[in-house]
Every structure is written in C-alpha cells, then in structure tokens.
Design a protein around this nucleic acid. Structure first.
Length: 475
RNA sequence: GCUCCCAUCGUCUAGCCUGGCCUAGGACACCGCCUUUUCACGGCGGCAACAGGGGUUCGAAUCCCCUUGGGAGUACCA
C-alpha cells in the first residue's frame, strides 16, 4: 500500500513555524516511503479563513521547499482539496449516520446547552444530556427538519473505552464517558473539524496522520467517527509541540513565529527547515547540519521525541551561518541579491560582488548582514577610538601613514589593484623596516580606522580609492 | 475540576523499548588555549544534566509505583 500523508492547514493566518514543522515531517515521511504528500485546505471556518492567507501559506511552503504532490494548484484524483468545496460530501455522510441512528438532530437552545455544560463541570454528568439523543425523539426531530427547521447534527457517542496506537506515544487510552455528543454538522450545514477531517482522510486514502500533540484528544472523537462510517483507521503519530522560553505556548510575544517573518529577515529556507526538523526529531547519526532531501534513507517515525521542545533561535542562527558558509560563490551571488539594499554594491561587477561575498561570508549569520559590512566598507570617516589612538601612537605608524598617503595620491583608477597594494606592503617591510604586527595593524588602522576586520590584501583592493584617501586624510 | 501526554546539561538532544559497554555522548551558547597582523572561521579543551522519593534487581538514566513540575484538550475554532 502506498503511503499517503497530508498537511491540512486552516487559512486563518500566516504559516506558523509549528505548522511548517508538521508539514515538514509529513513531507519527509512521504519522500522516505516513496509515498505521496497531499495538501488539503481546511477552510470550514468561514469567518476566519481567507484566500489571502491561503495564498500566503502556499507561498511560504513553496519557499521552504515543501511542495505537495496533490492539492491546490496541482490537483489529483481525490479532489477537490478545499473543504468548503466538499460540503455535500460531508452532508451525505452525516445524513447517513442519522439514518443509521449514529447521529441525531439537536434542537436544544443555547441556554439549555449552557446549563448542561455547567452541570457537567459541577456534578460530573455527561457533557450532553439533551433529550434529542433519545431515539424516541428522532421521528419528531426528522419531521421538524423536513418542515424546514434548521438544527445541528450531533454524533451519538457510544459508552465505551477508546484507544488508539500512536507511533510517538504508544497506546493511548481514554476511559468511557469523557466526551459528549459532539456536533458534526453545524446549523448552517458546514461540518466541524473532527468530522470532515476524518471523512477527508478516509476519502483521500491517508495512511499516516502526522500532526501536533494538541490533537491527541481530538483523536478520541475521530476514532469514533472512523468506526461509525466503517472506515479503516490510519496510523497516527502525534508530534510534541513547540513552546517558548517561558514554557508557554508559542505566541507573538516570543518573537517571530511565522515563516514569513524569518523569510523577510533573510533566513535561509534550508536552515529553517534543518532547525525545525531537529526540534523533536533526531538524526540516527547525530548529524546536525543537513539538507532534508538527504533524509530519505534515514527518516523514521520512531525517532520522535515525546517531550516538548523549547524554541530558541540561537541555534537557528548558527545553522543559518553554517548553510551560508557551505554555499558556493555563484549561488551566494544570486541568492543574496534580493537582500542587498546598498546602491554602491548593486552597481558593482559580479567579480567585485563575489570577492566581497566570499570575504565576508565567514563573518555573517544572515544575508542582510552583508549590508552592514558594505556600510563598513564604504565608511568615509574614521572614528577615533582608544584602539585607533593606540595604533597611531606607535612610532612606526606615521611612516606607514605618510607612505600610504603618497601612494594613494598616485593612483588614478578607482581601485588599488592587488599587486600595487602588495608593493606598498613590501616597501614598508624593506625600506621602512616595519613588519609583523606593527605593519599589519598599522596598515589596517591607517586604511580602515579599525583594529580588526577581514584580510587586508582582499579588503583594500575592494575599497574605492577615494574612500581610502578620505580616511587617511582625516587622521 | 476532569481527561490525555511529558520529565537527561541553560537550550536542542543521544542513550531508555531489548537493565551492566554511562565515571551519561554530541550540538548551540559560554569560558580557556592553539591558529591568525586583527576579527571571524577552524582545531583542541573546559563548564554543565539523568526532577524528588520509594520499590524490583547482583546491578537502573533505562522497568514499576507515588510525589512534584510542565504541556495539551475540555467550542455549532481547527
């Protein structure tokens, strides 16, 4: 049997990193099993769902490289893949359950329901105790519906223990009587999550349901629905949740929680996905930097962690840096271009850009950091720091400065070429008899006003001569 | 409240199922040293954990129970 998994987001917001992680696990599992990864849009919450959010989530998933095999924009033999377009299917199943006496119309008022839930909490009575669950009322109920009255359909929960197997948690058991007769079809004819989710997973021939631990309790209800419609159950894997540093559910106050924010900040999708993957799952060889496409042969549902993971972006930043360092220049050139805001940079030749990117890629963690490095490179004025004063006070420095100043005046092109700069250094060594730290630090201080930075032999030929002149002049 | 789930360094985790190889391994962060003109990278080293208490056993991070702590659910949201 072919493995078929799905990610089923609600388009009620931007793609959350928690959702992205769930999508990722489904995606990798499908790939590792030679199966299919299906995307289904659960848009039954008409008030909160929007096409904009849907498009945004789709776009973010594409950015992450989590492209589905079936679903919106692609199609497939089990469509449609929007729940809002499948309403008649759910209604048919619901009506069927009503006919079989496994579900019933409920005419209780809101006040009745409120009292029931109050009583349930205080006295431990079942959550739903309305009379409409009694089969003796069903003829009347059906007659009222036939006469045009509207009513939600509730699932008649059987009074028995329920259990299911979970790849992460083992056997999960629920004692009987814990769940009330829940609504499966709202008054407006739209199904609720626990119902349509099951119908779709069944119809979409989903073999493995990988989702967040927050759905464990829902699975109880869903198991009942599977049984009622006579469907085979998929295998489950409820993955632990992501929480914030304060051990609370991840929310806005924990900083960036949507994929879009990371994308805008310049994080690499492969780094984000690498990090997210390792939050609750471990590589059998304890590898920490990898591309998810290389996980096909090693991914397994048995390596999920049962406990919650605290989301901490320090390691993500490190990973992002690692992925940048591993990138070759040509890729670096094309992929950084959307982030480079510096006009000067954008006017340079590709060779110049490549040299610049190579020079600084070891030092940054995020692409936009290159812009700050550009600012440093183009900084005309010299800030008189204590360190710089120190360098300038060395007895060797004035000679270096005078020589550099004179040489700079002779340069007619926009840049000093590498050979020329080497000659300057050689002159300082041979004629001025300066070498080692006084030479390099002296040069750096005079030419950049800094006491540290990247390799001078690359940096100086990259810096416009007029800027070098201004710096030297301001000393 | 009730139900379900979880518990190894500050953080992500390996080990747990199939007790001894664990004086508990790796990674991030932090500290030190080496390399380097400097910074970064890299290399080497250090700091740092089996929540607590009972069992079972010759032996427990690993199995069982309790306590404590944390999370999730408890909607005509998903």
């Amino acid at each position: 049997m072919t493995v078929r998994v799905r990610f089923a987001p609600s388009p009620t917001g931007n793609l959350h990193i928690g959702g992205a992680r769930t999508a990722l696990y489904n995606y990798i599992f499908a790939k590792s099993q030679g199966g299919k990864y299906i995307l289904r849009i659960e848009d039954t919450d008409k008030e909160r769902s929007t096409k904009e959010f849907e498009a945004s989530q789709l776009d973010d998933m594409k950015w992450l490289g989590l492209v589905h095999d079936e679903g919106p924009g692609i199609g497939g033999e089990y469509g449609p893949y929007h729940q809002i377009e499948r309403l008649d299917i759910y209604m048919k199943y619901a009506l069927d359950l009503v006919e079989q006496g496994k579900a019933f119309y409920d005419f209780c008022s809101d006040e009745d329901l409120e009292q029931m839930s109050l009583k349930s909490k205080e006295e431990g009575t079942p959550p739903y105790t309305g009379k409409w669950k009694e089969s003796s009322t069903w003829d009347e109920a059906k007659a009222r519906v036939a006469a045009g009255e509207k009513a939600p359909i509730r699932f008649l929960v059987s009074d028995k223990d329920v259990s299911f197997k979970d790849h992460v948690r083992g056997d999960v058991k629920f004692p009987k009587g814990m769940v009330g007769d829940f609504v499966i079809m709202r008054t407006n004819g739209v199904p609720t999550y626990n119902f349509c989710n099951v119908i779709d997973d069944h119809l979409h021939k989903i073999t493995h349901v990988i989702r967040g631990e927050d759905h464990v309790n829902n699975t109880l209800r869903q198991v009942l629905v599977y049984e009622a419609i006579g469907a085979d159950m998929p295998e489950f894997a409820h993955v632990s949740l992501l929480i914030g540093e304060d051990r609370q559910k991840l929310s806005k106050r924990h900083g960036a929680t949507s994929v879009k924010q990371y994308r805008e900040q310049g994080y690499l999708p492969e780094a984000l996905v690498n990090y997210l993957c390792l939050l609750g799952w471990s590589h059998p060889d304890e590898k920490d930097i990898f591309k998810i496409e290389n996980l096909k042969d090693v991914f397994s549902l048995s390596r999920f962690s049962k406990s919650h993971a605290i989301y901490d972006i320090e390691k993500l930043k490190w990973m992002n840096g690692q992925h940048i360092k591993a990138m070759d220049v040509d890729e670096l050139l094309t992929r950084t271009s959307p982030f480079m805001t510096n006009d000067f940079y954008n006017q340079q030749t590709d060779d110049w850009k490549k040299t610049f990117l190579e020079l600084y890629k070891e030092k940054i963690t995020l692409f936009p950091d290159f812009n700050e490095k550009m600012d440093e490179l183009l900084n005309e004025s010299v800030e008189m720091t204590e360190d710089l004063k120190d360098i300038l006070s060395w007895e060797t420095t004035p000679a270096i400065r005078d020589h550099i100043k004179a040489e700079l005046e002779k340069v007619s092109s926009d840049y000093v070429d590498t050979d020329a700069f080497s000659e300057w250094m050689n002159f300082c060594k041979k004629e001025l008899k300066i070498k080692g730290k006084p030479l390099f630090m002296g040069l750096r201080g005079v030419l950049t006003g800094q006491n540290h930075g990247p390799d001078l032999k690359v940096l100086i030929p990259l810096t416009p001569v007029n800027i070098l002149k201004k710096r030297v002049a301001s000393l």
